[in-house]
Each structure stands twice: as structure tokens, then as C-alpha cells.
């Protein structure tokens, strides 16, 4: 599995990380090494080993539909870098609408 600098550029875009051409070229083979290591697991897994996403064999862990206490708005906003009108204030969101 050989990642190209273009693949890495796509990943960087999704992760919102800005990388230079040199970094893309340098990272591609490094990520390859990681992918190869993970691919090793696939060799061990045989058809009789079911896919696992949870370490414990539990299903149907539910809670009743009952309202409990929420946090006070002041406490919630206390750690916000900026707040206004009881809301979190965030920098403008780019690239969602032209």
C-alpha cells in the first residue's frame, strides 16, 4: 500500500492541518509504515474470528427516559474562550456557504 502525497494532502484537508509540499512528501512514506504495521493484523485475522468493536460482550445497555439535572449556564460558559448572550462565541465558520 503506497500512499501518495495527494492522499496525504486529502487527509490533511479533512483534519484541517496545513502542510507544505515537502511535508506531504516526507509524511507519505511514514504513514505507509504505520499502515503496513496495521495491515499485519489482517494477516492474523481469519474468517472464523468475528469483527470486534467492543472489548466486553454486552448489548442493550439502556437508561430510562427520565430527566436529571443539567449544569448551570454560568458554569458551562465559564471555561469558554469567549461568550455572548449566554452562548459560546466562536470565530466565523468558513467554507460552509458561498
Amino acid at each position: 500500500m503506497a500512499l501518495t502525497p495527494a492522499d496525504v494532502a486529502r487527509l490533511a484537508e479533512l483534519a484541517r492541518i496545513r502542510l507544505t509540499e515537502d511535508e506531504l512528501s516526507a509524511l507519505a512514506p511514514q504513514l505507509d509504515v504505520i499502515l503496513d504495521a496495521v495491515a499485519g493484523v489482517a494477516e492474523v485475522a481469519s474468517a472464523d474470528v468475528p469483527l470486534t468493536s467492543h472489548a466486553v460482550p454486552l448489548t442493550n445497555v439502556f437508561r430510562p427516559d427520565v430527566v436529571g439535572p443539567s449544569l448551570a449556564a454560568e458554569a458551562v460558559l465559564a471555561a469558554a474562550p469567549a461568550a455572548e448572550d449566554g452562548r459560546f462565541r466562536v470565530p466565523r465558520i468558513l467554507g460552509e456557504e458561498q
Binding site: 458551562v76 452562548r87 462565541r89 466562536v90 466565523r92 465558520i93 456557504e97
Partner: peptide, 20 residues
């Protein structure tokens, strides 16, 4: 989210406010 700016639209907002 509430977008704060001239038009109230996301594209030309100065910043946004979030209520969770």
C-alpha cells in the same frame, strides 16, 4: 448556531454564537 454579521448568514458572518 446564530451567525452574527450583516446578513445573519454564515458566509459573511463576523462570528457565530452556539447554544447546545
Amino acid at each position: 448556531s446564530v451567525h452574527v454579521g450583516l446578513s445573519g448568514r454564515i458566509g459573511d458572518a463576523d462570528y457565530s454564537l452556539l447554544d447546545y
